[in-house]
Amino acid sequence: MDGKCAIVTGAARGIGLATADLFREAGWRVAMVDRDSAELARAEASRGDALALARDVSNPQDVDAIMRETAAWAGRIDALVNNAGVAEFGPIEDCDFEMWRRVMATNLDGVFLCTQAATPYLKETAGAVVNIASISGLRASTLRVAYGTSKAAVIHLTRQQAAELGEYGIRCNAVCPGPVRTKLAMAVHTQEIIDAYHDAIPLNRYGSEREIAEVICFLCSDKASYVTGQVIAADGGFESTGVGLPALRR
C-alpha cells in the first residue's frame, strides 16, 4: 500500500481516461472520478485495479468524499489531476447566467475545491497538482466566453496555488491542450474546421489523448521535481502562431 496514488477527475473518457491508464502503466494506483456513473462503470470494468468514484467535483461534499475515500483506499495521495470540465459554446448574447454558472461550477470551482481538499494529503507526500486548462484560456476566440474565461481563471489559479503551496513541497502546474482528436471533437468538428486547424497548427495535425497524458504524468513525476507554477501548451504549436480560425466563427 506504499505505492504512489493519483486522483484523476473527469476520468471516464478522453484525456482523463488516457491519463489514468498512463499512471497505471507506471505502477501508480489511480482513483478515477467522474459524475457520469454509467460511463465510469464501463471504464472501470476493464481496469479492476483502479478505484472508481462517481462524484461531482462542483459539490463540496462530494469533493471531501473523494479525498477521504481515496486516502482510505490507497493510504496516501501523491497527485491530483483536475481534468473534469464542461464545454458549452455559443455567442455572448446567448450565454445566459445559468450556462455561465454551469461552466464555472465544474471548470473553475471544481479545481479550487479539489485542490483545497487535497492539500492536507499532498502536504504529507510533497505531491503535485496538474490543472487542465486549454489554449482557449491563453488566447481569446469566438463562441467561448464562458469556457475560455473559466480556463483563463484556472491558469491564474494554478499560479496562486504554486505560490502558496510551494513551501510545503507541493508543485502546481497547468496543461493547456490544443485541438485533440477525441471522439467528441471528431463528432462536432466539420471538415472545414478540421482542415483549418491542420493549416493553423505548426505540426499540421490534431494531438492525441495519449500525448496530452504524457505531459500530465511527467509533471506529476519526480522528473519534474523543480517545475512549478508553469503553464504548458500541449498544442502542436497552435498558441505560438496567434492566428485565429475563420471557420470557428460560425
Rank of each mutant, 00 (worst) to 15 (best):
V130L: 12
V103S: 00
C95R: 07
I135A: 12
A79M: 08
I66F: 11
P91T: 12
E98R: 09
A133V: 09
W100I: 01
L53G: 05
E124K: 14
I92Q: 08
Y121P: 07
D78Y: 05
I66E: 10
W73P: 01
W100T: 00
Q61N: 14
N59T: 00
C114A: 06
M104S: 03
V63P: 02
S136T: 13
R76Q: 15
G127V: 10
K123S: 02
A126W: 09
N83E: 07
M104D: 01
A71M: 13
A84C: 13
V145N: 09
W73R: 15
E98A: 15
P91R: 13
R139N: 12
T142A: 15
T142K: 09
P120W: 04
E98L: 09
F97S: 10
F97I: 14
G137A: 11
D109K: 06
A126E: 14
P91G: 09
V130N: 09
F89S: 14
A72V: 01
E93S: 15
M67D: 00
T142I: 10
V129Y: 05
E98M: 06
A133E: 02
F112M: 10
W100F: 03
V145E: 13
G85H: 03
Y121D: 05
A146R: 02
T115Y: 04
N131Q: 10
R76W: 06
P60S: 10
G127I: 12
W100V: 03
L122S: 09
R76S: 11
V145P: 00
D56T: 01
L143V: 04
V129H: 00
D94Y: 07
V129P: 05
A87L: 12
T115K: 06
V103L: 09
S134F: 02
A118W: 00
E124M: 12
V130M: 14
